[in-house]
């Protein structure tokens, strides 16, 4: 028994080293101002750069837009399919994993090819990126919404509301949504984490998203890029803590997987 514990401890220590050393190295790098001088210079540089605020604001708006549009599309659809068209559910399950088969790098080339020459309000604005993001986030949002709906009895809730005279809008907004808000929130947080770090589609569609800005800084200045890496890690951490806090309130503390590779 002793031996087993030592073996486990060794693994955990090795694992911790592999994951912590790059972070600590980046932290040290981000605090370097010269050969042997340390300070917050790189952070000051980043925080006063107007491009930093612009890109982070852009990505935040895109994330909020993706969350709103995804929920508008998915909540009524999943509700309606579960209530009236259960035969559609396997089809929707299948569609929801398709974005894994058509990853962002492939989706972006397809979108650009299909919509070349489309109206400029669509292709010359972030609208096309937003549509790509909704597809990118689809597996995660769908899973949250579907799990939420599965956990409550939508048939009973709908019948009860209808017998009290509620219309469809009232049922959805004031009965169904409040009952699945934890699931919706966790889907929203995961989407936030994914979109804030998304690089592939934004860079190939030539939008200055946060990750594109990080890459741009990295091409010229190493220390501010390290500072940005730490900031980005902290943002991911905060989002994940939010996700876990929501999950714990719902009684399941399982972290979720998304990510922009």
């Amino acid at each position: 028994m002793r031996n087993v514990s030592w073996f486990k401890l060794l693994w955990l220590v090795l694992g911790a080293m592999y994951f912590l050393i790059p972070l600590l190295a980046t932290l040290q790098f981000s605090l370097q101002e010269g050969r042997d001088e340390y300070g917050f210079g790189p952070y000051k540089y980043i925080l006063t750069d107007p491009l930093f605020r612009q890109s982070i604001w852009f990505s935040f708006k895109m994330a909020i837009g993706t969350i709103v549009l995804s929920l508008l599309l998915l909540v009524p659809t999943v509700y309606w399919a579960r209530l009236r068209l259960p035969r559609l559910l396997p089809v929707m399950d299948f569609i929801s994993i398709l974005p894994f088969v058509v990853p962002p790098i492939v989706l972006v080339i397809g979108l650009l090819a299909l919509y070349r020459g489309a109206p400029s309000w669509f292709v010359a604005t972030p609208v096309i990126l937003l549509c790509g993001y909704v597809i990118h986030a689809l597996p995660y949002v769908y899973r949250s919404v579907d799990a939420g709906m599965q956990a409550i009895n939508i048939h009973t809730l709908t019948e009860a509301s209808q017998s009290l005279g509620a219309g469809w809008g009232t049922i959805l907004l004031r009965v169904i949504v409040p009952n699945i808000r934890v699931a919706l929130l966790s889907g929203a947080f995961l989407t936030l984490a994914i979109i804030m770090g998304e690089y592939t589609m934004a860079s190939l569609m030539l939008f200055n998203a946060f990750a594109v800005y990080i890459a741009y800084v990295g091409e010229t200045q190493a220390n501010p890029a390290a500072a940005l890496t730490i900031i980005s890690f902290a943002m991911t951490w905060i989002t994940m803590m939010g996700l876990l806090a929501i999950g714990r309130r719902a009684g399941r503390g399982q972290a979720q997987i998304g990510g922009a590779r």
Binding site: A193, G197, Y199, A211, I214, L228, M240, L244, A255, G259
Partner: peptide, 11 residues
Amino acid sequence: SGVAANFAGVP
């Protein structure tokens, strides 16, 4: 793991 699995790409 949740953080590290999501912390990828450029940073």
